[in-house]
Amino acid sequence: MSFEPLSLDDLELFQDDLDIDLIGENLDAITIDPTLPAEMSYTVTATDKGERLDKLVSNMRPDLSRGHVQRLIEEGNLTINGTIVKSGYKLREADLIHLIVPPPAPLAHLAPEAIPLDVVYSDDDIMVINKPAGLVVHPAPGHYSGTLVNALLYHVPNLNINGNIRPGIVHRLDKDTSGLLVVAKTDKALNSLIGQMKEQSTLKEYTVLVEGNVQPPAGIIDAPIGRDPKARKQMAVVRNGKPARTEYKVLAYFARHTLLMARLHTGRTHQIRVHFAYMGHPVTGDPVYGRRKPTLNLKRQFLHAALLGLALPSTGEYREFQAPLPPELEKALLEAQNFD
């Protein structure tokens, strides 16, 4: 089942990354694929003529978001014919693009913190964590404490992968989303997990409670997601957004809510929240894409990463991990069941 994307004009000014402090973690903006070259050149073809510089480069380098590319341009690390231009520069045939991707910032200014972690699985290569709601995954400018990364530096001594400021983080959960998240302890494991996610061989299933009764009881929402042109700090279904597919299955209907299983086939920022809001069934308790007046006594969105499947980097064995609903979501679910 596909839903017709919204028709929105003038999307060229979009940046694909978000303000991390305000909206949640955006992995695209800060993870550099170590398998891709740190320096590269490209000659613009007739097919590329007229394309925006930042858009073309972000399409060529999937590990770099539009916002990251724009910063590289501002810093002089992305040039046209040896000259610094603006992000919106319209490319001409035979233009020479030269890109340098600096290495990630070191970890020296990040301090280990004794933040408790619910470790579901751990070996020499990876750690699977059941993240509580309220825990930010990785640091952002001006906010270098109290995050999952700070906790990892404490629980995994000498953790330093590629000198990355967010060591081992290959996917993320929004601050107020709970559930399973895998982190790498070694460069080898990091590359393995990045490869699995690019090949979409990992399994990510979420338990979701949404407003209203969803019909049909199973389907796939296939609608591209990008920055909302009307609300800069939000995402939306937009015509020229990145492809996004969410599979779902109804688990139970209640008087005013629907309990769902949602499976991600892509990993766009706020994908589940945006897709169900687009359907007219926002995630219950979502303060950004949901209803202004909460229908349940819930202080966070009802979104929980319940199942994670992946191949262990050390052996290649496929494993699945599960995390039960946290108490606050169990309580909200009981309230939904008894809603008159």
Rank of each mutant, 00 (worst) to 15 (best):
M261V: 09
R61Q: 11
L18Q: 07
G50E: 09
G219E: 09
R239E: 14
K185L: 02
T202Q: 02
Y206L: 04
T295V: 14
D63F: 03
P324R: 06
R92N: 15
L310R: 00
M60N: 09
R166H: 02
D118I: 03
D54C: 02
I80K: 09
G142S: 06
R245M: 15
L27K: 03
A218D: 12
S178Y: 10
L72S: 03
A311F: 00
R300L: 09
T284S: 14
A218T: 14
K86F: 06
L334T: 11
D118L: 02
D118G: 02
E93P: 02
L99A: 04
L152P: 00
H155R: 11
P62R: 15
L107R: 13
S87P: 12
R239M: 09
K185E: 06
I100E: 08
Y154M: 10
S58Q: 08
D176W: 05
G241T: 10
T295S: 11
P102T: 01
N213Y: 08
E328D: 15
L173F: 05
P229S: 03
P62L: 10
P327R: 03
D63T: 10
H109I: 02
E328V: 15
L96K: 12
L190G: 01
E4H: 15
Y289W: 14
Y89G: 04
V119G: 02
Y42W: 06
R239S: 14
R268I: 11
T202E: 01
K230P: 00
S122Y: 01
A108D: 15
E330I: 14
V101N: 06
V238A: 12
V250T: 15
E93D: 10
L312Y: 00
